[in-house]
Amino acid sequence: MTTLRTPGPTIGVVGGGQLGRMLAEAAAPLGVEVVVLDPTPDCPAALVARDQIVADFDDEAGIRDLAERADILTFEIELADQNVMDRISEETGTPVHPKPSTLETIHDKLVQKRELEDAGVPVPPFRKVDDADDIRAAIDDYGAPVMLKARTGGYDGRGNVPVESKADAEDALESVAGPAMVESFVDFEREVSVIAVKGDDEVATFPLGENVHEDEILRETIVPARSSEAVTERAYDVARDVLEVMDGRGVYGIELFEATDGEILLNEIAPRPHNSGHWTIEGTQTSQFEQHIRAVLGWPLGSTALRSPTVMTNLLGDVEEEGLAQLGDIDEILETPGASLHWYGKHQARPLRKMGHVTVTADGDDDSVDDLLETARDLKAAVTFQS
């Protein structure tokens, strides 16, 4: 076994948003330095990373500079260009994890669903969409509503459009504005997710999280999920099957539907730390961000054991138009036992933009996840955005 030492290597991260910021925060105690590439000057990760390269996510010269300054490359946003990263990795000898081939699969949701279905992963019925008639045909076969999804460019709920009737097909397809696919609408009991980690020769899964979405945007994650033991184990089985399809080390956010009949169906995959795993910073022995650092480096993974029941709530831009961002009235969060505030350092607030999150952990044996959820909602309601 190779003896690991610290100070350790440098990781180059394509993307310097809040995920890059939290990756750099997790890397620092391990003696690992992080350099990020992001087109926004003074991006959220810039304050805690060693350095920032200001360049677009597909900028070949910028990614080459990043590769030459790093021992390994990874990404925190799906907008990273797999072809550029693959080519530069070959030319510079700097490995990329997860592999660019995984990005290629993830970039096209239709390709993603076909590969997963071929591998035996349970997915909702789906089909390619070339025109509005294909949507109408899907409604005939699946019933209304159906979910229209942009095949490329959409993440975190972007590019997903519910189609309630055949009369809405034309407008829905126009709103997607590009290659599309359609899925049957899943009658689900709850939405859940498994944050899974693929290491050098080991796999780990975090406790199952229950997710609350509104307008396709994640609002809250509740852990443990209020699912049965059998459903929870089935979710882990599906997540491990998904990892078999993915190529390369790292954290994967695997979003799932728990159907009303107890079946687990795959929704989407993010080959990176995921919003529904932010609770792990306070909630587990090793956060998803530290696990990603360990995994991409090929280091031993940490424990994913739950410290205590935990609820995370997102702080979304509560403004009517874009402006300078400042969060006010945070006193109650800071005074509440078990509550933790995470501010992402974004300079501009926009409507529903993810600006931060609050985590609430159990402060005793009597705290249920329902109590924690109520506390988290109260704390979120107390803060104000000033722009």
Rank of each mutant, 00 (worst) to 15 (best):
residue 62 G to V: 12
residue 57 F to A: 00
residue 31 G to R: 05
residue 128 K to M: 05
residue 340 S to C: 02
residue 376 A to L: 09
residue 63 I to D: 00
residue 215 D to W: 13
residue 217 I to P: 11
residue 336 T to A: 11
residue 332 E to S: 07
residue 362 A to Q: 12
residue 347 H to A: 15
residue 320 E to W: 02
residue 249 R to N: 09
residue 271 P to T: 12
residue 249 R to F: 05
residue 271 P to A: 07
residue 69 R to G: 13
residue 96 V to D: 01
residue 288 Q to A: 07
residue 260 T to G: 10
residue 91 E to D: 15
residue 61 A to Y: 00
residue 307 R to C: 04
residue 16 G to Y: 10
residue 110 L to M: 10
residue 372 L to A: 10
residue 140 D to H: 08
residue 102 T to K: 09
residue 324 L to R: 15
residue 245 V to S: 00
residue 358 V to P: 06
residue 156 D to A: 03
residue 336 T to H: 14
residue 118 D to Y: 04
residue 183 E to F: 08
residue 214 E to H: 12
residue 336 T to L: 11
residue 300 P to W: 05
residue 10 T to E: 11
residue 246 M to S: 05
residue 60 E to W: 04
residue 125 P to W: 10
residue 227 S to W: 04
residue 385 F to T: 00
residue 226 R to E: 14
residue 248 G to Y: 02
residue 211 N to R: 00
residue 276 S to M: 07
residue 293 I to Y: 03
residue 238 V to R: 03
residue 113 K to T: 03
residue 127 R to G: 11
residue 19 L to S: 00
residue 361 T to I: 09
residue 332 E to H: 06
residue 337 P to S: 01
residue 301 L to W: 02
residue 196 A to F: 08
residue 85 M to Q: 01
residue 230 A to H: 13
residue 362 A to K: 07
residue 9 P to N: 07
residue 374 E to T: 15
residue 350 R to K: 15
residue 67 A to R: 13
residue 200 D to L: 12
residue 12 G to T: 07
residue 246 M to Y: 09
residue 63 I to L: 10
residue 132 A to D: 01
residue 19 L to T: 00
residue 386 Q to N: 08
residue 102 T to N: 06
residue 373 L to P: 02
residue 181 M to W: 05
residue 227 S to L: 13
residue 88 I to A: 05
residue 229 E to W: 08
residue 181 M to E: 06
residue 385 F to L: 01
residue 154 G to P: 09
residue 383 V to K: 13
residue 211 N to V: 05
residue 33 E to S: 14
residue 297 L to Q: 02
residue 347 H to N: 15
residue 342 H to L: 02
residue 174 E to V: 07
residue 104 E to M: 13
residue 228 S to H: 12
residue 315 L to D: 04
residue 83 N to T: 13
residue 233 E to M: 06
residue 280 T to I: 11
residue 327 L to W: 04
